[in-house]
């Protein structure tokens, strides 16, 4: 099976650069994503998990071409798009689309649903009017929305409906890959399940490949084939979904799994109170998690562990992987 999406050593630094006139002292920079490499096979869902500030949204925005990477390649169906990132979003738009976290702020409040859904058909595919109408009807039906919604404005919809419209817009571009950035975290649980089930139907129906970003481990586990865990800008663990939470190798993944509130598990602080993320402007030399890690030894503070295969496609970046 060929990989639909293959990214290699994708890197993003923010800041740096110089002042207004192009000279002067270099400003401090933040290494937001550190040489991320991922493959996603056609028709699969890759989950990306991490806490706020771990770089998962930056990674996603680079993959859809909204943010130019500092280094690395983005191959979609064998073609490298990295050069065009940030410059030609339309080239990306035809093969990869984004579904945003906040459904309402992702829809222009002054446009009708019809105008919103027509934009990708007009601009990306130059489709004539009657074909557009047919295509919109088809997509609207696929996301279970009624055709009379087309002439309404976004504020007339609930969160769940607005998110379906966001998904419909992404589908209208007829992409191969959808990047779903926390698509359900702004929704209530009862609606969340509706949207997740819809997404899994659409994946079959339109032969899509998903990149599913979330902070909610249980949601990711329910939808993903493989899961990548990010911490402080780097992928620290990458494994099949059922493996990764059942037998986490990286201690950070284990901590995440322990922290999720679960019915029937007694309450206990999984770690000490002073556990905090390292300073991004002044990153530690070794493993970024070492200061919070129960298994950390001297080597962890000195050298950064590489992401290595620990058997059966279970990759982890840890000097002392958990058993």
């Amino acid at each position: 099976m060929t990989d639909t999406l293959r990214i290699r050593d994708l890197d993003k630094r923010f800041g740096g650069g110089r002042g207004l006139l192009g000279f002067g002292k270099e400003k401090p920079s933040v290494h937001a994503v550190q040489s991320a490499s991922l493959d996603v096979a056609r028709g699969q869902t890759l989950g990306i998990v991490g806490e706020s500030g771990c770089g998962k949204s930056t990674l996603a925005r680079m993959i859809v071409g909204l943010l130019p990477p500092s280094a690395g390649t983005i191959e979609i169906e064998g073609v490298n798009y990295a050069e065009r990132a940030g410059r030609d979003p339309a080239a990306f738009g035809k093969v990869i689309q984004y579904v945003f976290q906040d459904p309402l702020s992702s829809l222009n409040p002054r446009k009708t649903i019809r105008q919103i859904l027509e934009a990708p058909l007009k601009r990306l595919h130059r489709m004539p009017a009657e074909q557009r109408a047919a295509r919109i009807a088809e997509i609207l039906d696929a996301v279970n929305l009624r055709p009379e919604f087309l002439d309404r404005y976004p504020h007339e919809f609930s969160g769940g409906q607005a998110q379906r419209i966001g998904i419909a817009r992404a589908l209208a571009a007829a992409p191969r890959i959808l990047v779903l950035d926390e698509p359900v975290s702004a929704l209530d649980v009862s609606v969340q399940a509706q949207v997740l089930n819809l997404l899994s139907q659409l994946r079959e129906e339109f032969d899509l490949t998903y990149l599913f970003i979330s902070h909610d481990l249980a949601v990711v586990e329910a939808v993903a084939d493989r899961v990548a865990v990010m911490y402080f800008g780097a992928i620290v663990e990458l494994a099949p979904a059922r493996e990764i939470f059942a037998r986490p190798r990286h201690h950070y993944t284990a901590l995440l799994a322990r922290s999720a509130p679960v019915v029937g598990r007694p309450l206990a602080a999984p770690e000490a109170a002073d556990a905090e993320l390292p300073d991004p402007l002044n990153p530690p030399p070794g493993c970024a998690f070492a200061r919070r890690c129960p298994a950390a030894t001297e080597i962890c503070h000195r050298t950064k562990p590489p992401l290595e295969d620990h058997g059966t496609g279970h990759h982890a970046a840890c000097h002392h992987p958990a058993r």
Partner: peptide, 19 residues
């Protein structure tokens, strides 16, 4: 039933239809 719980594996989730 709607709340996904860790350890359930990949699956269809329960939803409440309507709003």
């Amino acid at each position: 039933a709607c709340v996904p719980e860790l350890g359930g594996g990949r699956r269809e989730l329960h939803a409440i239809p309507g709003l």
